[in-house]
Every structure is written in C-alpha cells, then in structure tokens.
Amino acid sequence: MSSSADSGSDRAESLHGRIGHQVQLPFVNAVRIAWRNIRVRLARSLLVTSGIILALAFLTYILCSDSLARNIAEQGQTRYVEQLLKQGILADLGDADARVQTWWLVGLALLVSFVGILNAMLLSVTERFKEIGTMKCLGALDGLIVQLFLLESTFQGVVGTAIGITIGVLLTLVEGMGLYGATMWTLVPVGNMAALVGICLLAGTGLTIVGALYPAWRAAKMQPVDAMRAEI
C-alpha cells in the first residue's frame, strides 16, 4: 500500500505537479462525518439497530437468567431449588446436560446475533450504493468509505448492544421477581452478572464490526459508476 503511494507521488512530481495526491483525512474528520450520519439517520439507524437489540437482549437474558438461577440454587435456598426443579429450569445443578443445554442456547443466540447484524449492515450499505458512488466521485478514498461504515456500525453496535443488554437484564429481573418474589433482590449475583454484561457488550460490538467489515469493504471497492448505477 505504502509503496504504491510513494511511486504515485514520484510520478505526480514528474508531471509538473499537474496531478496531485489525495490526502488521507485525519481520523477525527471521519469520526465527525460518521457521527453526523448516525445522528441524521437516527430513525433509520434504530431500525437497523433493532436487529442488534433483539439479538443481544436474547443473549443477555439467556446468560443472566441462568446465572441468577444458579446463584439462587447455590445459596442453598432449597425452597427455590424445588421451585426451579418443578419448572424444569434447572434440572440438576451438577448435571452436565444442563450446562450443555445452556451453551447450546448461548451459541444459538450468538448465531442469531451475527446473522441479524450482518443482515442489518448489508442492508444499510446496499441502500446507500448511490451515495457511496457520489462520495467517490467527490474524491473520497476507499479507506475513508471503509472507515465511515466501520465507525457508523461501531456506534450502532455499542448503542444497540447497550439497549439490548438493558432489555435482557430487565427481563431477567422481572422474571426473577415473578418466580422468587422480592427476596430475589438479595440473591442477584451482581458481580457475575456485571461480568456477563461486559462479555455481551464486547460480543455485540465485536460482532457488529465484523459484520460491517465485508459490506463496507465491498462498497469501498466498487467503481463509482457501478455504485451509482446499482438499482436497489
């Protein structure tokens, strides 16, 4: 990459400075443009983000309700364990099957998240092909286009993930209240759940960025004419 840039500036020199060398914008400029894009498209972005929200709410709920149930069981609150067993939520704590089932659900939630996010990002890129083509006509470098989409998706990822996690945690607590009553509050595994929330935040944001990479790269590589002609 850098070698081609060097040879480019050499050639530009030999052409009496007729053709220059497009500058790479400081990162903060890309952040500013991306942030404005997000703000202006808030409604639209929220729609795209809803996929992320749902997926992360699901993932967080699975992990946190499992953690809560385990904690209640481990604290020796036998009456709750009986209740748990009756409901089949926690067949047997020492049972490997239960763990396998939880991990299976977590895997499913992750898959749902990834597909939802990838779909959302593909959608948001393809509906803006014409805009990307125009930007390239105006002198935007491929790298800037990638940066813009990655930044936008990072914003979306963080916000969507945060909302999703909040919903997931609330669901867990509301359900806990329903099942175990007010004593549930003394038995919330705060540290454990905070760690899970952290993991979910990383997973959601990470998946969003990974999901945005391919569409953003594809959009940036497109010839401006093709991008502008693309019908959606």
Binding site: G20, Q22, L141
Partner: peptide, 13 residues
C-alpha cells in the same frame, strides 16, 4: 496511468 490516490485527487480537485 493514475493510481488510486491520484485518481481520487483528480476527481476531487
């Protein structure tokens, strides 16, 4: 004969 950066510069300026 222009590379990516020169082409972008051409389109821009």
């Amino acid at each position: 004969a222009l590379d990516t950066f020169e082409l972008a510069w051409l389109r821009c300026h």
